[in-house]
């Protein structure tokens, strides 16, 4: 295997809240290879966004970050990100308006992004900005580049941010829930724009989402996070077909099936709720909700270890005992 483009090792992000240390990311490791799409999935509080911000060197104020983040072997943790941002690594946030200025035109902002990393003439930078907008499917890009962000629809703004992230042809793009705020139809267009821009530039992508259907359609590999740790990772196909962590299995089982069963209106559901990061269970964080949990699950937190297909890893004491499909493990009761 060649050296990974991005290697994250034993990442910890600890926040301060109400005088307590809140362990939000707890020893996360993953790799991203060249041109690869890796999805980070998990629900709110799982630590996905904090992971993105830590990898990007932009942790929230007061957060303590430890571990290693290497880009092509070069350690970034504690180092300057100058020359990395924009040129080698770029960010697409959930809300485009957090990165677009309301007082400059979209074209001016992307042009400025070009000139911030390369000495190019204004015209040259401008034409690259227009080409970038064109690549994400903005029709009549030269004219639209003269518009302000508020004159764009939500989907167009998100595509403009993707254009801006991609314009300097970074090696890695980190997109944090880039379509959560959008309609499903617009979501599909934005994800297509992201895929097209990625194809054209050869960038690798870390796609943060809570939507497993987006993962299935767009990612090569997936890292499933729960309570600040990876509970499962691997190539998308085997993880979806035969998950080795009960949490992954529960998430997949609770999706409405593509083929509608004419009789059964019940969805398998995971009882309970994710733990609070300030009151984590002693052992496996999922044990209180897990239908397979035994005593040792409550005593000892399992480590991520090979399970299932090649490349698949799971953090579960009982990963070998998980049936396929695991649908029957989860309750179809009305209430939890």
């Amino acid at each position: 295997m060649p050296e990974p483009l991005l290697a994250v090792r034993d990442l910890h992000v600890t926040l301060r809240g109400g005088g307590h240390a809140v362990p939000a990311v707890r020893g996360l490791s993953f790799e991203v290879h060249q041109r690869e799409v890796v999805a980070l999935v998990g629900e709110s509080g799982a630590g996905k966004s904090l992971t993105a911000r830590a990898v990007l060197g932009m942790p929230p104020h007061g957060a303590r970050v430890t571990g290693s983040v290497r880009l092509r072997g070069r350690e970034l943790m504690g180092e300057s990100y100058a020359g990395v941002w924009g040129r080698r690594m770029a960010f697409v946030p959930q809300d485009a308006l957090t990165v677009l200025s309301p007082v400059h035109t979209v074209g001016d902002q992307i042009t400025a992004a070009v000139r911030s990393v390369a000495k190019t003439s204004r015209q040259e930078a401008r034409s690259r900005a227009v080409a970038a907008l064109d690549r994400v499917g903005i029709a009549d890009a030269a004219r639209r580049a003269r518009a302000y962000p508020h004159e764009f629809s939500g989907g167009m703004r998100q595509r403009a941010v993707i254009a801006m992230a991609m314009v300097n042809e970074p090696e890695l793009v980190i997109a944090d829930e880039p379509t959560t705020a959008l309609d499903p139809a617009i979501e599909a267009q934005v994800l297509e724009a992201l895929a097209a821009a990625r194809e054209a530039t050869g960038a690798a992508l870390v796609l943060i989402t809570h939507d497993l259907r987006i993962v299935a359609r767009h990612a090569d590999r997936v890292v499933v996070m729960y309570a600040g740790r990876a509970v499962e990772s691997g190539p998308v196909e085997p993880v979806f077909r035969a998950p080795r962590a009960p949490y992954t299995a529960g998430l997949i089982a609770s999706l409405p099936p593509a083929e509608v069963d004419a009789v059964d209106r019940w969805l398998p559901s995971i009882d309970g709720a994710p733990p609070s990061p300030t009151h984590l269970p002693r052992g496996c964080a999922f044990a209180p909700r897990c239908p397979l949990a035994r005593q040792n699950c409550e005593d000892e937190e399992p480590a991520l270890a090979p399970a299932g297909e090649p490349g698949q890893l799971a953090a579960c004491h009982r990963s070998t005992e998980l049936p396929v499909p695991a649908t029957g493990l989860f309750s179809r009761k009305a209430t939890a």
């Binding site: 629900e43 709110s44 809570h210 939507d211 497993l212 949490y247 529960g250 998430l251 609770s254 019940w266 969805l267 398998p268 559901s269 995971i270 009882d271 709720a273 994710p274 909700r289 179809r332 009761k333 009305a334 209430t335 939890a336």
Partner: peptide
């Protein structure tokens, strides 16, 4: 959250 959605719909 996705893991609690199905439970509320079943209810």
């Amino acid at each position: 959250d996705p893991s609690v959605r199905a439970g509320v719909l079943n209810l």
